[in-house]
């Protein structure tokens, strides 16, 4: 029983880690506080839903389609975010709040308020490893998160581009003086972050029912994980993501699903009170 909770919690947590990584990369290079993160995730989910249910493609073909669609959206968003003036964090939070409303209503127009799910029957079959049974879906989620996060970790730690990117996150001006092409790095990281959301979208749609107003909780979780871990700390994001996944699972089992959003909000408030500077990196 508890082992099962642990496993499904870790699978959920891995999913959280991916979306938090996306949030962290976007915030890290552009300082855009993207409240519409969950809605972008939903957008990815809806794209995959259309690809699967209307065009009869399977789950896996829908993933690159979702990634591509969101990356294209990302190009537009990046241009728009560039125009926003100081105070950047506050203005982007207000702007993206507008984006939340706009996207929610766009989903309503195209998909109505119905709950939808990507049906992937093969994922509910269970596999036993060491006497513990996983569903295929959990295993896939876990592996996908593990692979994408390891890839990103390797990219940031061990390639020249990754080092340049980390420098850009830490100090834009200094990075520029060192001859790093800050603008190119920013847009790449931004699109990378959005692409991660595009990757997570189809998974979201197959684990959860998706509906137009279902994005905000994912946003809050991405923010919680990012604040706890600190911007750009890839390994810490995995730990924090798992922690959040376990907590959510525990709350759902112990108190019931009705308390989940409330607890998420309480956690966010508690973390903000503990770290009033939030994402700003001054101790």
């Amino acid at each position: 029983m508890y082992l099962k909770l642990l496993i499904s919690g870790l699978a959920l947590g891995s999913f959280y880690a991916i979306i938090a990584l996306g949030f962290s990369m976007i915030f890290g290079v552009t300082r855009v506080f993207n409240l519409a993160h969950g809605e972008l995730l939903l957008a990815g989910g809806y794209v995959a839903y259309v690809a699967c249910e209307r065009f009869g493609l399977g789950f896996w073909p829908s993933v690159p389609i979702s990634v591509l669609a969101l990356t294209l959206l990302g190009v537009i968003l990046y241009r728009v975010f560039r125009v926003i003036k100081e105070p950047l964090e506050l203005n982007t939070i207000v702007f993206t709040f507008g984006l939340v409303i706009a996207l929610q209503n766009l989903f309503l127009i195209f998909f109505s308020a119905d709950y939808r799910i990507l049906t992937t029957p093969e994922w509910s079959t269970t596999i036993e490893i060491f006497n513990v049974s996983f569903t295929r879906g959990q295993l896939t989620m876990f592996l996908t998160a593990f692979i994408s996060v390891s890839a990103l970790y390797f990219l940031l730690r061990h390639t020249f581009w990754g080092k340049a990117l980390r420098a850009t996150i830490q100090d834009r001006e200094a990075a520029g003086l060192l001859g790093i092409d800050v603008e190119k790095n920013s847009i790449l990281a931004f699109l990378g972050g959005i692409a991660l959301v595009g990757l997570a979208g189809p998974f979201f749609a197959s684990f959860h029912y998706i509906h137009p107003t279902g994005g905000i909780e994912a946003t809050l979780i991405a923010i919680i994980v990012t604040i706890v871990a600190g911007v750009g700390h890839v390994r810490a994001i995995i730990w924090a993501g798992w922690g959040m996944g376990l907590l959510e699972n525990l709350v759902t089992t112990m108190l019931g699903a009705a308390f989940r959003e409330g607890v998420t909000s309480l956690v966010l408030i508690a973390i903000l009170l503990y770290k009033p500077c939030g994402l700003a990196d001054n101790q």
Binding site: L35, L90, T92, L220, S265, L266, I269
Partner: peptide, 24 residues
């Protein structure tokens, strides 16, 4: 009183989360 130390985006975020509590 609770959010007295929060400013800007973080105050906004805390109030966003606040709604869930009376709702719960």
């Amino acid at each position: 009183i609770l959010f007295a130390r929060l400013r800007g985006a973080y105050f906004a975020l805390a109030t966003l989360a606040l709604v869930e509590i009376p709702k719960m």
